[in-house]
Amino acid sequence: MPVTIDDVRAVADGLPRSYEVLVRDRVKFRVGSIVWLAFNQEETEMGFAFPKEERAALVASEPEVFFLPRESDLRFNWVESRMGALDEERMRELVLDAWRMVVPKKLWDWPATD
């Protein structure tokens, strides 16, 4: 079943230092001033922090799921995805990996494990 923005919020809202903002009618998540997760206005596409050097391979491996950001955003560590092509497990993995790109390593083990 495809994920919704509410499914993503359930993961992103609880992450340390992450907060949600609304910019030009678009939901974005930030850590400090860094946007690490964002949605288009229709909430059908999710962009997220992702290593520039790995994104071409990701897009090429699953073009039905992932695509490059617009040309003006190619300078950023960023890739886009189609929400309808993601299941909850995959979304959770992408969200946590994107968040880990922008927080100190000491927070990476969230949630704390015993």
Score class of each variant (00 low, 15 high):
residue 52 K to I: 13
residue 52 K to T: 14
residue 52 K to N: 13
residue 52 K to S: 11
residue 52 K to M: 12
residue 53 E to F: 13
residue 53 E to H: 09
residue 53 E to C: 05
residue 55 R to G: 04
residue 55 R to D: 06
residue 55 R to M: 03
residue 56 A to D: 15
residue 56 A to I: 06
residue 56 A to Y: 14
residue 56 A to E: 14
residue 57 A to P: 02
residue 57 A to H: 05
residue 57 A to Y: 06
residue 58 L to F: 06
residue 59 V to M: 00
residue 59 V to F: 04
residue 59 V to L: 06
residue 60 A to N: 09
residue 60 A to T: 04
residue 60 A to D: 11
residue 62 E to D: 15
residue 62 E to G: 00
residue 62 E to K: 04
residue 63 P to Q: 07
residue 64 E to Q: 11
residue 64 E to S: 14
residue 64 E to M: 07
residue 64 E to C: 01
residue 64 E to H: 13
residue 64 E to L: 13
residue 64 E to K: 11
residue 65 V to N: 02
residue 65 V to H: 01
residue 65 V to M: 02
residue 66 F to R: 00
residue 68 L to H: 13
residue 68 L to F: 07
residue 68 L to G: 08
residue 68 L to C: 01
residue 69 P to A: 14
residue 69 P to C: 11
residue 70 R to S: 10
residue 71 E to T: 10
residue 71 E to F: 12
residue 71 E to V: 09
residue 73 D to T: 10
residue 73 D to A: 14
residue 73 D to Q: 13
residue 74 L to M: 08
residue 74 L to G: 01
residue 74 L to A: 08
residue 75 R to I: 11
residue 75 R to E: 09
residue 75 R to L: 03
residue 75 R to G: 15
residue 75 R to V: 12
residue 76 F to I: 04
residue 76 F to Y: 14
residue 77 N to T: 07
residue 77 N to C: 11
residue 77 N to G: 05
residue 78 W to T: 05
residue 78 W to N: 03
residue 78 W to V: 09
residue 78 W to S: 05
residue 79 V to D: 07
residue 79 V to S: 04
residue 79 V to M: 05
residue 81 S to N: 04
residue 81 S to L: 03
residue 81 S to F: 05
residue 81 S to D: 04
